[in-house]
Design a protein around this nucleic acid. Structure first.
Length: 824
RNA sequence: GCCCGGGUGGCGGAAUUGGUAGACGCAAGGGACUUAAAAUCCCUCGGUCGCAAGGCUGUACCGGUUCGAUUCCGGUCCCGGGCACCA
């Protein structure tokens, strides 16, 4: 052990040691308790950023802690390697997405290794490798067979100038980010996964995932959005057809005075009367031009157009004009809304704008409601009026009664509706997993036979940045023959959404080299489910919902026997600097490489864990990093200075200590208990580190006496510190541990055990309050009963003045903590 | 607009089940060591009144429950994140 703490050489040394010994390589060991720890894998964007450092530092603490506690820990790492940025970079640099991606992976792998994260690198995978994506193609085919993958038309953002589909993030203020043309909605045939088949189960399990943050579960429940209501048919005046609506407010049916349809509604054009046809067509065109993001903006002007047709309210028999309205979405319900302007704010505004009638059917209890005087819709609970035989009912109870009535009369049916929509997985992009389908003029869409997999993504492609998917132009890829009839046919050129790859990578990690299928069932069942998953809160819905869905699909395809992929979830906050999220454009980025170079990886890890608890945002502070570095230096000196004493230390005899020794030992074991709980139960690494710092301060104040028991107590204390620090600053701990004369690595030493007997206090400090205000403190023997404490508190010199001339009404005693004297 | 979080010193944060508000760290100020600087060590550090002992006050704001509220309840304001106008 050197006199001075030199992180660079220490870190290189131990990283070499771990690599040479394959310290973190694991296999399925039935005799050991398994622990699968996973952090969300990175997109290989170029370099790691502080968010990665934080995410992976949090994970590494848990991995190393569990290892020290004797678990067989699976801790893998890989790359979410397909995606748009690679393609954009290829266009910009006139290079190839594969090259860009692999270079980035190589660089970032070095960075992660420099951080000292304890991964089993033998399991590394990249989703753009054919060994990964070919199995995904197989899964797609099996989903297709079961009807879980299907094709339907839907709308995409389309740039007419580039001739390209745009992602939402490529649309800026309704215009193409590259050429600034106005983006329009284009209808396209696309592949979908039937996630809605699993809506009920996905919802159900949100009530069983006890290891997930309630916040995330709430968001997922809201996303799935189950609601109970009715489907009601409104007959058309001049047609045989009916318009079907879904509503959760059947209690307001008597107040429905007009009908609003989505512009995309299949009946929209048919309902346009000759006089109105031109306006209706113009309106549909206009809605298609407005992009989805804008359409949902707060200040979006509610607009509509009258079709010229009328339908009939089935309970009031009133004529209801049928409008198209820009705020009605085809994706939710039936794409048609019965408009109740008196009791829905949007309908109220719409009715005002187009001079449509208002009919009050609910009034506040004990009051009446004048339709002419209303300035907003009345949307709270009340009593039904103008509703025939239902008048006088409370509107909540009326929901059930009216639903029953509608069913009996054959007007409508009770219905459950979900917000969740099927998952569109088609992407008109090159850098993704090719969807294994073939189009034949005679046979239609034909799946690629399983034995012909993989459909290789061709490498000889040029990137222009316009004119659509580059894959379309690779003749050798597109041109093929129909597997069914042998005639000339075309390959599907859509690739799969990258969320598909991230929906099952955690399963592939269990058997990454398995050559006979996507996963080796025996190995997967040993490791799954993931015991602890860690990642950013931004993935609370999409990724985490898709991964849950995919796990259930793989279960139903017979690949695995579990229902849910992640038993416990930890969502971490963002890394902030100067009050904003770190980003290149804001220029407030802290480069992990520079940090490692200056302080070493251990300091970077320590600070990112100490500055805030994981789930909170972390405000970066350069001075704070200095503080963490100073702390490590202090510990280093403490060990180095006491080394000669520690080497001579006799065996510890806990029964035979002086008061100072006992006090220090009590401190050591109380700290062990706290740090263990903070890591294991709360993931509050900041307070765990603070507790270790306090113990270091205590040890520094401890003066070893010339008695035989001082050195062993000190030795136990210092060894405890080093072992507790090991998950946080592993290189540092390994070096110091070896310096203390230990061999074989600190993992083998295990996590220190708390000796409960040593934590027992001999005396307790009792806080004395008078009328709830702190007035004094008394020290009593730990065994003192209530009477003794009370006596001592009432006699305390600092308390007495507050009792003078007053009468003691009550004394409340909280054992071992506090006594409150109530006087008046 | 809807949904989900959050608001504690100059700063990051602590107070885990309603029981000492401000642990730990940073910054700042003072001191020791040094020819000097760095490093290190020691002291002070919410506000306010006081020579001091100590008092009063204080966890966004207003109110409530309680012997006791940063913590629970009702209302208000502000900040952050998410969204697919959810009928």
């Amino acid at each position: 052990m050197e006199e001075k703490y030199l992180p660079k050489s220490i870190e290189e040394k131990w990283q070499g040691f771990w690599e040479a010994n394959k310290s973190f390589k694991v296999t399925e060991d039935q005799s050991a308790k398994k622990y699968y720890l996973l952090e969300m894998f990175p997109y290989p964007s170029g370099r790691i950023h502080m968010g990665h450092v934080r995410n992976y530092s949090i994970g590494d603490v848990i991995a190393r802690f569990k290892r020290m506690r004797g678990f067989n820990v699976l801790h893998p790492m890989g790359w979410d390697a397909f995606g748009m940025p690679a393609e954009n970079a290829a266009i910009q640099n006139r290079s190839h997405p594969a090259r860009w991606t692999h270079e980035n992976i190589a660089y970032m792998r070095v960075q992660l290794k420099k951080m000292g994260f304890s991964y089993d690198w033998d399991r590394e995978l990249a989703t753009c490798d054919v060994e990964y994506y070919k199995w995904e193609q197989l899964i797609f085919l099996q989903m297709y067979k079961k009807g879980l993958a299907y094709k339907k038309t839907s709308f995409v953002n389309w740039c007419p100038r580039c001739g390209t589909v745009l992602a939402n993030e490529q649309v800026e203020d309704g215009c193409c980010w590259r050429c600034d043309s106005v983006v329009r909605q284009k209808e396209l045939e696309q592949w979908f996964f039937r996630i809605t088949d699993y809506a009920e189960e996905l919802l159900d399990y949100t009530f069983k995932l006890s290891g997930w943050p309630e916040r995330v579960l709430t968001m997922q429940r809201n996303w799935i959005g189950k609601s109970y209501g009715c489907e009601i048919d409104f007959p058309l005046e001049e047609h045989l057809a009916k318009i079907r609506v879904f509503t959760t407010r059947q209690d307001t049916l008597f107040g429905a005075t007009f009908m609003s349809l989505a512009a995309e509604h299949p009946m929209a054009l048919d309902l346009a009367t000759p006089d109105n046809r031109a306006q209706v067509e113009a309106f549909i065109e206009k809605v298609q031009k407005s992009d989805k993001a804008r359409r949902s903006a707060e200040d979006f002007e509610k607009e509509g157009v009258f079709t010229g047709s009328y339908c009939i309210n089935p309970v009031t028999n009133c004529r209801m004009p049928v409008y198209l309205a820009n705020f009605v979405l085809m994706d939710y319900g039936t794409g048609a809304v019965m408009a109740v302007p008196a009791h829905d704010q949007r309908d109220f505004e719409f009715a005002n704008k187009y001079g449509l009638p208002l009919r009050v059917v609910i009034r506040p209890e004990g009051e009446s409601l004048d339709p002419g005087a209303m300035t907003a819709a009345f949307t709270t609970e009340g009593i039904l009026v103008n509703s025939g035989r239902f008048d006088g009912l409370g509107n909540e109870e009326a929901k059930e009664i009216i639903a029953d009535f509608l069913e009996k009369e054959g007007i409508g049916t009770k219905s459950v509706n979900y917000r969740l929509r099927d998952w569109g997985v088609s992407r008109q992009r090159y850098w993704g997993n090719p969807i294994p389908m073939i189009y034949c003029d005679l046979c239609g869409a034909v799946p690629v036979p399983e034995q012909e997999l993989p459909v290789l993504l061709p490498m000889d492609v040029t990137f222009a940045g316009e004119g659509g998917n580059p894959l379309d132009k690779v003749d050798s890829f597109v041109t093929t023959t129909c597997p069914q009839c042998g005639e000339a046919a075309r390959r599907e050129t859509d690739t799969m959404d990258t969320f598909v790859q991230s929906s099952w990578y955690f399963l592939r990690y269990c058997s990454p080299d398995f050559a006979a299928g996507p996963l080796d069932r025996a190995r997967s069942e040993y490791w799954m489910s993931v015991d602890q998953y860690i990642g950013g809160i931004e993935h609370a819905v999409l990724h985490l919902l898709y991964a849950r869905f995919f796990t259930k699909v793989l279960r139903d395809l017979g690949y695995i026997g579990i229902d849910e992929p992640f038993s416990n979830l930890l969502t971490q906050g963002m890394v902030i600097k100067d009050g904003a999220k770190m980003s290149k454009s804001k220029g407030n980025v802290v480069d992990p490489d520079a940090l490692i170079k200056r302080y070493g990886a251990d300091t970077a890890r320590l600070f990112s864990l100490f500055a805030a608890p994981p789930e909170k945002d972390l405000e970066w502070s350069d001075q704070g990093v200095d503080g963490s570095f100073r702390f490590l230096n202090r510990v280093w000196r403490l060990v180095f200075d006491t080394l000669p004493l520690l080497h001579r230390a006799a065996t510890l005899d806990p029964e035979n200590l002086n008061d100072e020794g006992k006090a220090l030992r009590r401190n050591v074991h109380k700290t062990i208990r706290k740090v263990t709980e903070d890591i294991e139960e709360r993931f509050h690494f900041n307070t765990a580190i603070a507790a270790i710092m306090e113990l270091v301060n205590t040890i520094q104040a401890f003066e070893p006496k010339n008695d035989p028991q001082s050195a062993p107590v000190l030795k136990e204390a210092i060894e405890g510190i080093i072992r507790m620090l090991a998950p946080f600053v592993p290189h540092f701990a390994e070096e110091v541990w070896a310096g203390l004369g230990n061999t074989g690595g600190i993992d083998k030493a295990g996590w220190p055990a708390c000796d409960a007997a040593a934590t027992m206090d001999e005396e307790l400090l009792i806080v004395v309050q008078v009328n709830g205000k702190l007035r004094g403190k008394v020290t009593v023997p730990a065994c003192a009963d209530e009477g003794t404490v009370k006596e001592k508190a009432l006699a305390d010199a600092k308390v007495l003045p507050f009792l003078e001339g007053k009468k003691v009404r009550k004394v409340i005693y909280i054992p071992g903590k506090l006594i409150n004297i109530v006087v008046n």
